[in-house]
């Protein structure tokens, strides 16, 4: 049993699950802010890709990771603003608007990557440093998992609580949810639905942009075309599977990254040969199952997806 545990190495397993879940959780939190206010966000993928690119580009130009991190967040907010302008002000179908951003992100990052980065000879500024929090990092088991991480992962852990608090314990959160459930009633109560939706969509851009920075600034220290590789859609799945709650999205993200990690370890330890592709399908299949209501129905905010026209 001990030999088995050693081989499975649960501490490093959970640690890797947590680290790889970072962008998923951040983008899912963003999607949640957005959707709770009544705006669907299938653009998480494009926002993350933009954040990953602009974050690295600025870090590369200034040789400063912190400016890069800031740029990733700001660029996420800017491209999310486009989503807000189109879907909130111009009443464009929110799926179409999200599609626009996903396509645009591929174009913008591809064009500028080729022009300015592909043939660059100078090195980037590396990756974000690991911070071992004093005392906390030496706690057995929990220390290595939670307190020996890089900044984006710490930020993710904190933001889970922040987003939960904002959504469920503040006036802003109540207004946000009112706009997502019944915008007409919210407006009657004196809430500026457009303003609330704008702020939430832009906040989702900040969160997903930070999630993008994970790929280029925390994980590998450079940008590669299409490096987010569909993780924005897994984040969408995590948000739905977590039933639009921060804690739920966090656990769902861990489940999704865990199934990947566990799959390869089970193979070497138990000689269990589950095809990795089947484990890879887990996030998508589970999401389909919950939206279909077969396993504790995931109920979306009632007004999500509908453009709201002021009276």
């Amino acid at each position: 049993m001990t030999a088995f545990l050693q081989q499975l190495d649960p501490v490093s397993l959970v640690s890797i699950m947590l680290i790889t879940a970072t962008p998923l959780v951040l983008a899912a939190l963003g999607g949640m802010m957005c959707e709770r206010s009544g705006v669907v966000n299938i653009a998480l993928e494009g926002i993350m890709l933009t954040g990953a690119f602009i974050g690295y580009f600025v870090a590369f130009l200034t040789q400063n990771l912190w400016l890069g991190l800031l740029a990733a967040i700001v660029s996420g907010m800017l491209i999310a603003t486009l989503h807000a302008v189109l879907s909130v002000s111009f009443l464009v179908d929110q799926i179409v608007s999200g599609t626009v951003i996903n396509i645009l992100a591929v174009g913008v990052t591809g064009v500028f990557y080729r022009t300015y980065l592909e043939t660059a000879t100078t090195a980037g500024p590396g990756t974000l440093p690991h911070w071992n929090l004093p005392l906390l990092s030496s706690i057995p088991v929990l220390g290595p998992i939670l307190f020996q991480n890089q900044l984006v992962t710490y930020a993710m852990l904190v933001l889970i609580f922040v987003v939960h608090f904002v959504l469920f314990n503040t006036v802003w959160g109540l207004r946000t949810r009112a706009c997502g459930e019944n915008p007409r009633a919210a407006e009657t109560a004196g809430i500026n639905v457009y303003f609330v939706r704008y702020v939430n969509v832009i906040a989702s851009g900040a969160l997903a942009g930070l999630g993008g920075a994970y790929f280029s600034l925390q994980q590998i220290g450079t940008f590669l075309p299409n490096m987010t590789g569909g993780r924005g859609f897994i984040a969408l799945a995590a948000m739905i599977f977590g039933k639009w709650t921060p804690g739920g999205a966090f656990l769902a993200s861990l489940l999704f990254t865990g199934s990947d990690q566990l799959g390869s370890r089970l193979q070497s330890v138990f000689q269990v040969h589950v095809p990795l592709q089947f484990l890879g399908m887990l996030p998508y299949v589970l999401t389909i199952v919950v939206v279909a209501g077969a396993m504790g129905r995931a109920i979306a905010p009632a007004a999500v997806g509908r453009p709201y026209k002021k009276t």
């Binding site: 189109l86 464009v92 599609t99 626009v100 396509i103 174009g107």
Partner: peptide, 20 residues
């Protein structure tokens, strides 16, 4: 030397104008 990804920008922009 302009990346072929440019057409994605053109496509995204034209959807914006068609859809709005």
């Amino acid at each position: 030397q302009v990346s072929s990804d440019l057409i994605s920008i053109v496509q995204a922009s034209l959807i914006i104008f068609v859809a709005a």
